[in-house]
Design a binder for these strands. Structure first.
Length: 489
RNA sequence: GCCGCGUUCGUCUAGGGGUCUAGGACGCUGCCCUUUCACGGCGGUAACACGGGUUCAAAUCCCGUACGCGGUACCA
């Protein structure tokens, strides 16, 4: 088995592209096959400089590795379509020789004119096809001499696939079963553009054939193009690979997960954005794997190895799937909690030191440990500013409701008692607070709430004793004293 | 318009003629735990698009309708 991921470097890797890559990767892994990366850079007008690097970076970040491809080698290279032009030209010539393709000289203006002329309510998108090609300027309507003359003197031309009407084109899709089109609906697709480069349709099937791809797994947006591809395979006498079209990832409002569509709903579309936001790659991968596929069990949290072991195309769904940011957040929390506080601290330490100058890695790790079960993202811990610096405000509603007359004095005397504690640990602090409660004949809430407020300025948060342990005696005493004189006065 | 694909809780899904009083997960929510909050535990909420068939029996098979999505480029 040989599969491929064949992105176009026209922008940062799309989240849907990552899922396509993942499914290919999982299938190859499952069957001990080969997974290759091919860069489909045939559109010079849409080329984006750093897009290719982003594809590598994003795949690497997600843990999706390929066996053959740019920078990796392999015996089917080169893996950039821009380096394979001669081969596409050869195949196009071969098709022309076979009478399966022809040369067309129409300018974009002439095609525009044809479309304008034929456009109507019933036919809003006229095609260049069996019905219209006879009115156009091409090697079918021109004499042989004229065609040769025009080509010889350097007129611009494209090569088009000659599609005959009335034929059924049918194939078995691994996720959808048999799919049938009638060739009437297929236009005379351009194979070689006037710049001499191939279109996706030609380059793709030539490469898939030459690279001995056995399974083509791609998004559903390609389903309608598949008859063109089948026609090409047939025309060349090649066997088409097994096709599998994945359901599209939809935005929560239902439309395509396009940049405009999704970002207005707060959904990042490029993998880079997920990297930058600090998502756990394993979480995104796990979430994506389950977006359109399931292992047939109730298990949702899975390692890549578990996914690969369970993966099969017949468990891929057929309906479009909506992207649910909340579920992704849940996956992220799950994976985050599986990490060690130190490891998390290391990843956010640069940001921590930037925001709280002088903070130590050990302290950040302690803060992470304290906050772990309430984090969605690693960096969320930095938003709990009170862990790193004295609170500069106190929650007004909570103070109004629960800060009593004795709260300030109790904070002050509790602070004094804390000066005697050794060792400074959560356990001994708990003992100390209990003693304090008994000595003063008060309810435990009468000191716990004021202390929490003094330390964090908030009515809720992590365990009080653990928080005190992390902050240290100096900081705790300072905060208690400050609160005793500044709150409720 | 035409062509193709689809349609089970709000979302991701299980199910593929009887085991479905339709299961799981996210979300939302109640209780417990915790003199905070969160985590966790135990509950709850909520779905077979609609209409015809076929069958003793349909979420499951067939047909139609509606709706959604994709395609309809010298973009991929």
């Amino acid at each position: 088995m040989r599969v491929r991921f064949a992105p176009s470097p026209t922008g940062y890797l799309h989240i849907g592209g990552l899922r396509t890559a993942l499914y290919n990767f999982l299938l190859a892994k499952r069957h001990g096959g080969t997974f290759l990366l091919r860069i489909e850079d045939t559109d010079q007008t849409r080329f984006v400089e750093d897009a290719e690097q982003d594809i590598f970076d994003s795949l690497t970040w997600a843990g999706i590795s390929f066996d053959e491809g740019p920078g990796k080698g392999g015996s089917f290279g080169p893996y950039h379509q821009s380096a394979r032009s001669a081969r596409y030209k050869d195949v196009a010539d071969q098709l022309i020789g076979l009478g399966k393709a022809y040369v067309a000289f129409d300018s974009s203006g002439e095609i525009e004119a044809l479309k304008e002329k034929l456009t109507s309510l019933e036919n809003p998108n006229p095609r260049y096809d069996y019905a219209t090609r006879s009115e156009m300027t091409n090697s079918l309507t021109l004499s042989k001499e004229e065609t040769v003359l025009r080509m010889g003197r350097g007129d611009e031309y494209v090569v088009r696939l000659l599609v005959h009407p009335g034929k059924e084109v049918s194939f078995i899709d691994a996720v959808r079963g048999q799919v049938t089109f009638v060739s009437d609906a297929v236009d005379d697709q351009v194979l070689i553009k006037s710049d001499g480069l191939p279109t996706y349709h030609l380059a793709n099937i030539v490469d898939d054939h030459d690279m001995e791809i056995t399974h083509v797994i791609r998004g559903e947006e390609w389903l309608s193009s598949t008859p063109k591809h089948i026609l090409l395979y047939d025309a060349l006498g090649w066997t088409a690979p097994q096709m599998a079209h994945l359901p599209l990832i939809l935005s929560p409002s239902g439309g395509k997960l396009s940049k405009r569509n999704a970002e207005s709903e707060g959904i990042p579309v490029s993998v880079k954005q997920y990297r930058d936001k600090g998502y756990e790659p394993e979480a995104l991968v796990n979430f994506l794997a389950l977006l359109g596929w399931n292992p047939g069990t109730d298990q949702e949290l899975m390692t890549v190895d578990e996914m690969a072991a369970a993966f099969s195309l017949d468990r891929v769904g057929q309906a479009g799937v909506q992207f649910d940011l909340q579920k992704l957040a849940w996956f992220n929390e799950q994976y985050l909690r599986g990490r060690s506080p130190l490891s998390i601290a290391q990843t956010i330490y640069p940001a921590a030191a930037d925001r709280y100058p002088g903070v130590s890695l050990e302290f950040v790790a302690g803060a992470v440990s304290l906050m772990l079960e309430r984090l969605s993202f690693a960096s969320d811990v930095l938003d709990a500013a009170y862990l790193f610096e004295d609170p500069n405000s106190f929650d007004e509603t909570a103070v109004a409701k629960r800060w009593k007359e004795n709260s300030g004095p109790l904070c002050a005397s509790f602070s004094k008692k804390l000066g005697t504690i050794s060792p400074w640990t959560a356990e001994s602090l708990q003992v100390c607070l209990k003693e304090f409660v008994e000595e003063n004949g008060i309810g435990i809430g009468e000191i716990m709430f004021p202390a929490r407020m003094a330390l964090s300025g908030l009515p809720s948060g992590p365990d009080l004793y653990a928080m005190m342990a992390l902050l240290g005696v100096d900081s705790v005493q300072r905060r208690l004293l400050r609160a005793s004189t500044s709150i409720g006065v």
